[in-house]
Simulated assay, not measured.
Amino acid sequence: MAELQSWTEVLKSSRKTALIQGGKRKIHYLFSDGKEMAEEYDLKTDELIMRKWRHKSPLGAQSPWQVEVGEPLVNTPGSQDSDIIRESCSNVAFSLVSTACFQWRIRNLAYQKDVFSVFVEPSERCTSNKKYFKKFCIPDLDRCCLPLESAALSFTHANNTLIVSYKKPKEILTGEQELLKELKELRGTTEGDCKAQ
């Protein structure tokens, strides 16, 4: 619990800016080490839609945003990164967070559910699955130094999408409720208003 409190304290002590726009609560965090985190929450459900991170290089340049939760950012034609060779996007994998669980969705997998085997690898602190051969880490559990539990893991397959879910531990749920309460106090009163802390 001490590790969870320390991560919660890091979030609380960061400089935050809040904005309500397009039905979303957008929060920008600036940490003392120079890292930045941006989150978007649905105003109606309070569910996390997007979380992304960036940091400064040793020479002070900003890194590109790295998506932790939500669909990956898509480079538009003509952007500076459009010429970089990337892995095939035929199987799109992305992470979601609901109020009850962490979830990953891998699209374009036409196999039946019984072809997949999904399991926890405690030594590597990740979940794995056979057939797609992808390992998923749960950064929220790592930041709070919480163990992985096999009983919390489940998966299903529908519409050519493999959906892997990991039920959130009560420590994470409690920390999220406290943080959400603080974030709601940051919100502006009308569309486009923002408030910094």
Rank of each mutant, 00 (worst) to 15 (best):
D81C: 10
F133C: 08
S32V: 11
S79Y: 07
D193Y: 14
Y111I: 07
W65G: 01
G175T: 07
D140F: 01
V97H: 04
A158W: 08
H55G: 04
E171L: 09
K195M: 15
E149T: 06
D42Q: 05
Q177I: 11
E9W: 03
E176F: 06
H157T: 13
Q177F: 10
Y132Q: 12
K16P: 02
P169C: 03
T76K: 13
V120D: 02
H157P: 06
D114G: 08
E40S: 08
G70I: 03
W65R: 03
K56E: 07
A158V: 13
S154W: 05
F31Q: 04
Q80S: 13
F116V: 07
S63L: 05
L19P: 01
H28L: 14
G34R: 02
Q62W: 10
G23S: 12
G22Y: 04
V164R: 00
V120A: 09
E176N: 14
I27E: 00
R15S: 12
C194Q: 15
K167I: 09
L141S: 00
M50P: 01
I172V: 15
V10M: 08
P64H: 04
L183N: 09
D42E: 08
E176V: 06
V164I: 15
K52I: 01
S88Q: 06
G192N: 11
N159Y: 14
F116L: 05
E71C: 10
K130F: 06
I49S: 02
L162E: 01
L183K: 11
E185L: 15
S79E: 15
L30I: 10
S150F: 04
F155G: 03
K167H: 11
K12F: 05
R51N: 01
A110G: 13
G34T: 05
F136R: 04
A18S: 15
P77D: 07
K131L: 09
S117K: 14
D193T: 15
A38E: 08
D193Q: 15
Y41Q: 02
E176A: 06
I84V: 14
E185R: 13
E3Y: 12
S165K: 10
D42N: 12
P77A: 07
Y132M: 10
D33K: 02
F133K: 06
G78S: 10
K181M: 13
Q103A: 13
P147T: 02
A38I: 10
N75T: 06
E68P: 00
K35D: 07
T156A: 09
L141N: 00
S165G: 03
P77T: 11
K26C: 06
C126A: 11
V10A: 11
P58R: 01
